[in-house]
Design a protein around this nucleic acid. Structure first.
Length: 961
RNA sequence: AGGACUAUAGCUCAGUUGGUUAGAGCGCUGCCUUGACAUGGCAGAGGUCAGCAGUUCAAAUCUGCUUAGUCCUACCA
């Protein structure tokens, strides 16, 4: 093996091998365990959040596979309607074309072409990440099978009246010319103005204080063209006399009623509200109650119409409505119209005032354009009717959120759920299976032929298919069962349903998680006809942010491609990557500056395993995770540590060949039987290993990957490498070691490493495979790959509390000597004599049994046991309980320095003792606290008192010099 | 406006049901190229656990308030 760990040299070959051997596929043996991947956008690339979640999913998958489960990790991608169409339209834009120039069919061909081009990126990235997904089952939401599931669900929901079409106000994106659902709207606070307009009263009416006009306030003056009422509060005395009267809408000349409605807040502004039912969700409700006209004034781009149009609340056009609008507005963009309206009011002397005002502005999460409430025909899922079982499933514990706090968020949304607008005016997506005849009647079925037979339509009835497509999330909502072959392959569906855990971000609870629960429970039933849940647990990961806590986004230029961390990237390349293909090229300079400042050297190559370990270590239950490249470096070093530990193990378990790095024949590690004798260190590490194994299992159960990685890290580094491997050297190097002793330690060194590799394999698949393979001749492991090897289980027979206590003592003695060396500036390599004094029988036994360990690890010239009464020279000392570990000062140690060192210890101990005695003299503590706690404090106090006495006698002795 | 979450070492974060001398990684200081590893070893410095009050024998941990930040929902037109 190389002296340092070189990730790129080992990663790819193992992945190819695993995939070729079909290890990623379910075996058909054992209890099923399944995870559905949250499908990434097929035309996108994976970012740190994906890498993070996929690492967790892969760790879970590999863990369960090694535990003998029939494990399926289902991969796939999503067609991402708007996002993908947007990208392709931009590509067309570069050629100076629009999608309309191409026509629907050609355009969709172009999208497929683009998908083919970019679609491979994600699977390449996933392979580099080591994801053990079953590639033979890979699915795409626009595949024929999944499309069929979509049609099936649509038709069934429609027939059950859980899906309907209606003319309603929707969130309209004037940039993409499509409706979007309410959760695709982001409300952000922005600075705006509040305009106060005078609306003259009709028929000579007057207000209570004698004015001939009402004052209304608005943040959107342009909508006044669609006003159909002015509302006041029914109990507002200023206006009661005017209720039922009219105002003359300025500019338009429309005569509109003054209505009374509770919705109005008397204390805000003037207490008069203009009502524009076709352009505001609240006004729609008010208007509906009072049957005020629904007057639409905008076209699909939110430019003013030449003629306004009016509708009934049932959606019928009102033909006798006079839609005249003032000259000069037709075709004007909404914001130009706003300026003109204000100017015109001003000119008429009807502009009362303009005030600064902060308001919440709705913007599309894709287009970032301001969303317009707009009256259109759309398809809806009656979510309100489907929500209850989904709420109950969480309430009664069938589905559990990890962490628990997200359940409240889920309930809150589900309890206030709105019907889901699922139609999108896009070309890329699942076209809605609905047909219309020339009279506008709607027919829903799987295809046109079925429409005709289902609705008994003659062949000559002309039918046209609905042009719209479905929201991407509609197909994603079916993901857990559509990917398994529903509605045909019910055997597979039932085998892996419900899936075990969904790993995803909290930001898509509503978009995806909640809808999956509703759809799955509606369509998938168990043998008793009881609704089945899609997954038992929902593990919500935090959001990966950059090192400053900023959300990673292309426009901020702070995204990190996980592959760049794996392979490394130089700074120029990184800057180029971050500043190319930007929506706002003017930000390039700033991004370049920040990038160069944050990563002057770019990223070093760290390898997949180090990245995965880092991500795992960040997987605490917190909401936000700031990714710091420094952490990655630390874990890359950890990989190197593991690598070199393996080298040491190999050097001691294989014959060495002179002048060569190649390994010779395997040595006798007990893999073929023979007597073994375990050293204290052997018994200790075997015992400690059992605790580690138990902890790892526990952390998997509790989804505490951060604790798990920390536990593994500190065991491997601080126990296995720093202590155990050092303690194995005295055995290997001692020419008097017996065959049984050598065999025992060789076997332990290999066995523990083998177990560690298995324990950590789900997180670091590549390095563990590489090392595991190299150890096979000495570990006795069979099987082709570590990924299908058995995961370690606790072996109670190996726990050995005596060995743990004895070795703890050994460590303390060694640390004591090192301590003196360190603080007295004695060179680490210089052999020194050490005396052990004031010890009891246990100390003496431990000393006798471990003399060679102690001498070797503390680099001692001699180690002498002092009986009581033996004369002890002036020494620097460390205490291990009562036992004094003494380094004679002669020629080595400065008296003043030693005194200072002891005084520091005295001070610290005194302080602590005072605290404990304070507790113990407190009557209430002694009488109220549990006996065990009081006892513990007493023991601590006693120990400190003797320690202080020892330290004092040491000072006395030094003073006599 | 309502709700949720967060505040622990210079930085990024752990800290289970109240009882630890409050931990880790990175960074920092000193010494070390010892026969796995300088991507290393040994030793060390560094914290009033955001603030205030309370409950308790005992609070980083439980409760209330305050401050700062993040997010969600709803909005007053």
């Amino acid at each position: 093996m190389e002296k340092t760990y070189q990730p790129n040299a080992i990663e790819r070959k193992h992945y190819d091998h695993w995939e070729n051997q079909q290890y990623f596929q379910p075996t058909g043996q054992g209890a099923p365990y399944s995870i559905m991947i949250p499908p990434p956008n097929v035309t996108g690339t994976l970012h740190m959040g994906h890498a993070f979640q996929q690492t967790i999913m892969d760790a879970l998958t590999r863990y369960h596979r090694m535990m003998g489960h029939d494990t399926l990790w289902q991969p796939g991608t999503d067609h991402a309607g708007i996002a993908t169409q947007m990208v392709v339209e931009r590509l067309l834009g570069a050629e100076g074309k629009t999608r309309h120039d191409l026509g629907r069919e050609t355009f969709i061909d172009r999208v497929w072409e683009w998908k083919g081009q970019s679609g491979g990126t994600i699977s390449q990235q996933m392979r580099r990440l080591g994801d053990s997904v079953d590639w033979t089952r890979e699915r795409f939401t626009m595949d024929e099978g999944l499309s069929e599931a979509v049609r099936e669900v649509f038709v069934r929901l429609y027939d059950e009246e859980l899906l309907y079409r209606g003319k309603r106000l929707v969130n309209w994106d004037p940039k993409f010319h499509t409706a979007i659902s309410d959760i695709e709207v982001e409300n952000k606070e922005e600075q705006g103005s509040l305009w106060h307009f005078r609306y003259p009263l009709a028929d000579g009416a007057k207000t209570a204080d004698g004015k001939d006009y009402l004052v209304v306030a608005t943040t959107r003056p342009e909508t006044m063209l669609g006003d159909s009422a002015v509302a006041v509060h029914p109990e507002d005395e200023r206006y009661t006399s005017l209720i039922g009267q009219f105002v003359d809408l300025p500019l338009v000349g429309r005569r509109i009623p003054i209505i009374a409605d509770d919705y109005v807040d008397m204390d805000f502004g003037t207490g008069c509200v203009k009502i524009t039912p076709a352009h505001d969700f609240n006004d729609y409700e008010v208007g509906k109650r009072h049957n005020a006209l629904l007057i639409n004034i905008f076209d699909k781009s939110a430019a003013v119409l030449a003629q306004a149009e009016a509708f009934s609340y049932a959606g019928q056009p009102l033909d006798d409505f006079d839609g005249s609008l003032p000259d000069g507005y037709g075709g004007l963009d909404r914001f130009d119209a706003r300026k003109k309206i204000v100017a015109d009011f001003d000119a008429l002397g009807l502009l009362e005032s303009i005030k600064d005002h902060t308001l919440m502005v709705p913007r599309g999460d894709r287009s970032h354009d301001i969303i317009e409430p707009w009256l259109t025909d759309q398809w809806y899922v009656a979510s309100t009717k489907m929500a209850q079982p989904a709420i109950d499933a969480v309430k009664d514990g069938q589905i559990e959120f990890v962490p628990k706090m997200y359940e409240n968020e889920y309930y809150h949304w589900m309890n206030n759920i709105q019907d889901w607008c699922i139609s999108r005016q896009l070309w890329w997506g699942h076209q809605i299976p609905a047909w219309y005849d020339n009279d506008g009647n709607v027919y829903v079925a799987r295809d046109e032929a079925e429409v005709r037979s289902k609705y008994s339509l003659a062949d000559d009835v002309e039918l046209t298919r609905d042009e719209d497509v479905l929201d991407t999330w509609f197909s994603s909502a079916l993901w857990t069962f559509s990917t398994l072959g529903w509605p045909h392959d019910m055997e597979t569906v039932m085998r892996f349903h419900p899936t075990d855990v969904l790993v995803t971000g909290f930001d898509i609870i509503f978009f995806w998680v909640a809808r999956m629960i509703m759809m799955t429970m509606h369509f998938i039933k168990d043998d008793d006809g009881k609704p089945m849940i899609p997954f038992k647990k929902i593990y919500m990961t935090g959001l990966i942010r950059d090192e400053n806590g900023q959300k990673m986004s292309k426009s901020k230029g702070n995204v990190i491609d996980p592959i760049d961390l794996i392979d490394g990237i130089d700074i120029d390349e990184l800057v180029k990557k971050r500043t190319s293909g930007m929506m706002q090229p003017q930000l390039a300079a700033k991004i370049e500056k920040n990038t160069r400042k944050s990563f002057p050297e770019g990223f070093a190559e760290s390898g997949t395993d180090a990245l995965r370990f880092t991500l795992t270590s960040l997987a605490s239950l917190s909401r936000d995770i700031n990714f710091d490249v420094k952490r990655l470096e630390g874990y890359r070093n950890f990989c190197n540590k593991l690598w070199n530990a393996a080298r040491l193990v190999q050097m001691n378990t294989f014959e060495s060949i002179e002048d060569s790095d190649e390994l010779g024949a395997p040595l006798d590690c007990g893999q073929h039987g023979g007597d073994v004798e375990y050293s204290l260190a052997d018994r200790w590490i075997r015992s400690r290993l059992q605790t580690l194994i138990a902890d790892v299992h526990k952390h998997y159960q509790q989804y505490r990957f951060d604790l798990m990685s920390q536990t593994l890290y500190s065991f491997i580094w601080d126990e296995y490498c720093s202590w155990y491997l050092e303690l194995s050297k005295p055995v290997f190097w001692n020419e008097h070691s017996t065959e049984a002793q050598l065999r025992g330690t060789r076997q332990t060194v290999v066995h523990v490493l083998d177990q560690l590799l298995r324990l950590i394999h789900p997180i670091m698949p590549f390095i563990t495979e590489e090392i595991w393979q190299s150890l096979k001749p000495v570990s006795g492991a069979t099987g082709d790959s570590i990924m299908i090897a058995e995961f370690p289980k606790v072996d109670e027979a190996q726990t050995d509390p005596t060995a743990e206590a004895d070795l703890e003592w050994v460590k303390e003695v060694i640390t004591g000597v090192r301590n003196i060396r360190g603080e007295m500036n004695i060179a680490p390599g210089k052999p020194i004599p050490v005396l052990l004094a004031n010890g009891d029988e246990t100390d003496e036994r431990r000393f006798r049994e471990n003399e060679s360990f102690l001498k070797q690890l503390a680099k001692l010239e001699s180690l002498t046991w002092m009986n009581s009464g033996d004369p002890v020279p002036a020494s620097s000392q460390a205490l291990v309980g009562h036992l004094k570990v003494l380094v004679p000062m002669a020629g080595l140690i400065d008296v003043a320095a030693e005194k200072a060192r002891i005084n520091k210890d005295v001070e610290k101990t005194n302080k602590e003792l005072a605290r404990i005695e304070g507790k113990l003299t407190n009557e209430k503590f002694v009488s109220n606290a549990p006996d065990a706690v009081v006892q513990k404090e007493k023991e601590k106090a006693d120990a400190m008192k003797t320690k202080l006495a020892d330290l004092q006698s040491q000072i006395d002795q030094l003073n006599q010099l």
